[in-house]
């Protein structure tokens, strides 16, 4: 790809970061950043931090923050795939831990929203340390896509 696309990509990256990280308190607390994006695909990175460690004996990040990373990335991939802005909510998320994570390394999640219907979006994701061929975790999630009409967007308590 030509270098002339880079400024535009950086601008889009900044906007995505504002949307998925800046405006979401927990994503901000985890210092998530946009690692990559393309249509229907989003990659977010979770930097390694001592206060996110689950087992001090190994220094490995807790599964909980990897769950948050995967949930955030999958949700972002859904939003990237919608033709118009819609409110979405996670219906379910399954995560398989296929290999132990390594200490002192950031975790990257690549999510692909491979199908969007009127009301539901389907996502597959994998988390890794930079080598996509060697994932730590694989995941699949489904999301409810709420209608555009605010009056019929119920289903959640006030």
């Amino acid at each position: 790809m030509s270098d002339s696309f880079l400024p535009q990509r950086d601008e889009i990256r900044r906007r995505l970061e504002g949307r998925y990280v800046g405006s979401v308190p927990h994503n901000r607390a985890l210092n998530l950043r946009v690692a990559d994006y393309r249509p229907e695909h989003l990659s977010l990175a979770l930097p390694y931090r001592e206060d996110l460690v689950g087992n001090p004996e190994t220094g490995v990040l807790h599964g909980g923050c990897i769950t948050s990373l995967i949930d955030a990335t999958c949700g972002g991939a859904v939003i990237l795939s919608l033709v118009a802005p819609r409110r979405i909510a996670t219906l379910d998320l399954r995560i398989d831990y296929v290999r132990p994570a390594l200490p002192h390394q950031e975790v990257i999640c690549d999510a692909h929203c491979y199908k969007v219907t009127r009301h539901v979006a389907f996502v597959r994701a994998a988390a890794h340390h930079g080598d996509k061929a060697s994932p730590i975790a694989t995941a699949s999630g489904t999301f409810v896509v709420f209608p555009d009409d605010n009056r019929s967007s119920g289903g959640e308590p006030e």
Binding site: N27, G63, G64, C65, A72
Partner: peptide, 10 residues
Amino acid sequence: HGGTLGALLE
């Protein structure tokens, strides 16, 4: 955040 609920459950 949905991830925090996953973290609590685990």
